[in-house]
Design a protein around this nucleic acid. Structure first.
Lengths: 139, 139
DNA sequence: ATTCCTGCAAATACTTTGCATCCTT
DNA sequence: AAGGATGCAAAGTATTTGCAGGAAT
């Protein structure tokens, strides 16, 4: 995805395509794993103010361009919503490496929950993450 | 569960059964939803130091008595591990109410992930949470 | 031109660390 | 008695708010 495309995405979401925002989306595209705010701040601190990073993330998350990922013992992380289709994470509890996996079985679970719940009638998002030891750490 | 039982649980985990810890476990038992640290601190601040709350939560989580729950747009929350068997949460994105649901289909997913992954060979924990609008907020 | 965004300064809130004392075992 | 646990003080991080100036539409 080039800057032109990023601009389109931002504008389509009703947001202005500013330089900091384009840089932020660009950064997310390069990252294989979801990023914590502090890491983004660290990476961009020479060109973009910390406060702006917080506000951009809030705005882009609200707009659906970013997605929050919460992992145990960790600050909130964010990733691009549309990078891969509906993926989840498996995290090594030792070295903290994060990998993706896909599985659509959770949709059936959501159906079932909706059917059984008397208090909820719509599901808009979900999180599904696994924790374990990667092969390197298991040795 | 009474204080006697809580004492047993703490000691079984190799921890001393102190008054603050018993009070903490007691508090969790009374709570229908996972609690954020700040809320615990607020509730106990007249009798227990803030620092102690942080340290207790760390110790009890490490011991497996508590379990971390991370929800979108929220600080880390904690709940008793053994209150209910393997439950998950459904969160109203508007009013933030949290309800539980159970479903063991995720176990099959875990099996499948293990079979397919070349980097992971064990899974020790998982998180699975849904977000939506509760009936009251959907109106 | 208008409205949205950004940067800076500062305030708040959250979390951790060190050490002396207390309490459980 | 010994070692773990707590409380207090203080430091270290993370996050939010207000406002003036700047940039995108």
């Amino acid at each position: 995805m080039n800057d032109q495309e990023i601009q389109r995405i931002l504008r389509a979401a009703g947001l202005r395509a500013t330089k900091p925002r384009i840089a932020l989306v660009s950064l997310f595209q390069k990252s294989p794993a979801p990023l914590p705010v502090t890491e983004i701040v660290e990476t961009m601190k020479d060109t973009i103010d910390m406060v702006t990073v917080y506000r951009m993330i809030e705005a882009l998350t609200k707009a659906g361009i970013l997605r929050e990922v919460n992992l145990h013992g960790d600050k909130a992380r964010f990733e691009l919503t549309d990078t891969k289709h509906d993926h989840h994470h498996i995290v090594c509890t030792n070295c903290k490496r994060i990998e993706d996996f896909t599985d659509d079985a959770h949709e059936k679970i959501e159906q079932r929950v909706l059917t059984h719940s008397k208090d909820f009638s719509s599901i808009t998002d979900h999180s599904f993450d696994l924790y374990g030891l990667c092969n390197a750490c298991a040795r």
